[in-house]
Simulated scan of single mutants.
Amino acid sequence: MPRFPEAPKSVLIQAAAGKGGKKYTNRSADDERQPARNVRVGREDLEGPYPGAFDAEEFGSDGFGSDAFEHDGTVQDGADRHPSGVVPHDHDHDHDQTDPTQPGPGQRWSTWRSVAKGARGPEPLPEWVVTRDAALDTELGILKTGKEADAFLVERAVPEGAGLPSDAPDLALDQAATRCLLVAKRYRSLEHGQFHRGSEYTEGRTVRRTRDQRAMEDRKSAWGRAVSATQWADAEFVALRDAWSAGAPVPYPVQIDGTEVLMEFIGTEETDDLGRTQAVAAPRLTRVRPSDDLLESYWDQLTHGMSVLARLGFAHGDLSPYNILAHGERLVIIDLPQVVDLAANPFSSDVLLRDCRTVSDWFIARGLDVDPDALFADLLAQAF
């Protein structure tokens, strides 16, 4: 019976580096799991399979891991890093494959068809989402490392030379997307995470099976730790699905597979004079300096998003300029695993007020006259 959750063949590990602070080295994931080597949990008992792991050897020492952010969005001490959110990809690995239609290093078949229908994104499906069975998922590098999960850049594309199904309508396939960039957010188990998920967020939250609920409350058991990691991924996917369907400015959730959530990549692709392409993630709100007009637009977009969440019965729970992306003139709210149920959670009012004050302080510091208490009152009115 396989151990859960599985991990890539190499993982990013933070190690002491003497007076210089910290450095990052690649160690075997088996080494990191050594204390729990004898612990085994049945994957078939969990709600959804864990995705097949990429062959991570190609990405173990190429420098992608140096772009390391903590959960709060700050750069870790002593971490050398690429320009924030920039991941180069020239697809040279494709040329090493004998058959371009078969998975190579750092690749797997698209998992779109392997997950249950309820584990896919909501309708209507955006036109850019690739759904073809012939698509390959290629891991391009690390976008962000955090205390509870890591975010990887993944390209899902139908390789040239992949044949079309003989019984498929040609027109529909011609119009279907053949390539898209995704963010794969992969949650760690509790023993490998650094973020202690408190009852402030989970109070009042329920799961579909009472057996899993009891397991989550017992953090000393291997089963409880495994189920907890899956449930935090599930909580983010459900929150993104409901928020996107209701019109909130959040990334489109493509699918969930065990502890991996695939979602829309918010950013652009740029090509330099030498023809090299790089994916540039949208910056966090804390890093931008908008004009007065754009600042007001950002505030309107943000309060609209918070209102949508409130009408759904949610508070973000960790809303700050670090969890908001500024993609040109568009704001996008991210990181929703800790959403709080406004009706069932006894701490919900405190959490919502904290969200209101945190984001309001950023806008006030930049000269916009906003009232966090008035925002809090308005959101509560919309929620109830």
Rank of each mutant, 00 (worst) to 15 (best):
L336I: 08
H327I: 01
N345R: 01
D293E: 08
R357F: 10
D341W: 00
E329G: 00
R357T: 12
Q301D: 06
A326Q: 01
A343Y: 07
A343M: 05
S348F: 05
G305K: 11
S349Y: 10
L309G: 07
A326V: 03
D300Q: 14
S291L: 00
P290V: 03
S360T: 08
S307R: 13
R357C: 10
L352I: 10
G317Q: 06
D355E: 10
V340H: 05
W362S: 09
Q338I: 12
D292C: 04
R311K: 14
P337T: 13
R330I: 04
V308H: 12
T358C: 13
T303E: 13
Q301E: 08
A315I: 00
D361P: 01
T303D: 09
D341F: 00
W299N: 04
Y322Q: 15
S349V: 06
L336R: 08
V288H: 05
F347Q: 12
S320H: 15
E329M: 04
P290G: 04
M306I: 09
R287M: 11
D355Q: 11
L302M: 10
A310W: 07
L331D: 09
L325N: 08
N323K: 14
H304D: 03
P321I: 14
L336E: 10
A326W: 08
S320Y: 15
D318S: 15
L312H: 06
D292H: 06
M306C: 12
S360K: 07
D350L: 12
S291T: 06
P321F: 15
L302E: 08
R330D: 10
F314Y: 15
N345D: 03
V308W: 13
L342F: 02
L342E: 04
R287A: 14
C356Q: 11
S320P: 13
L295F: 01
S307C: 09
L309F: 10
S307H: 12
V359G: 09
W362H: 11
A315T: 01
H304E: 02
V359R: 09
L325Y: 10
L312R: 06
G328C: 02
D341C: 00
D350V: 07
D292P: 00
V339E: 02
W299E: 02
D293C: 00
N345Y: 01
E329F: 01
R289I: 05
A315G: 12
L319C: 13
T358A: 15
S291E: 04
P321D: 11
A326T: 03
A310S: 12
L294Y: 01
D355K: 08
S349C: 07
T358S: 15
V351K: 09
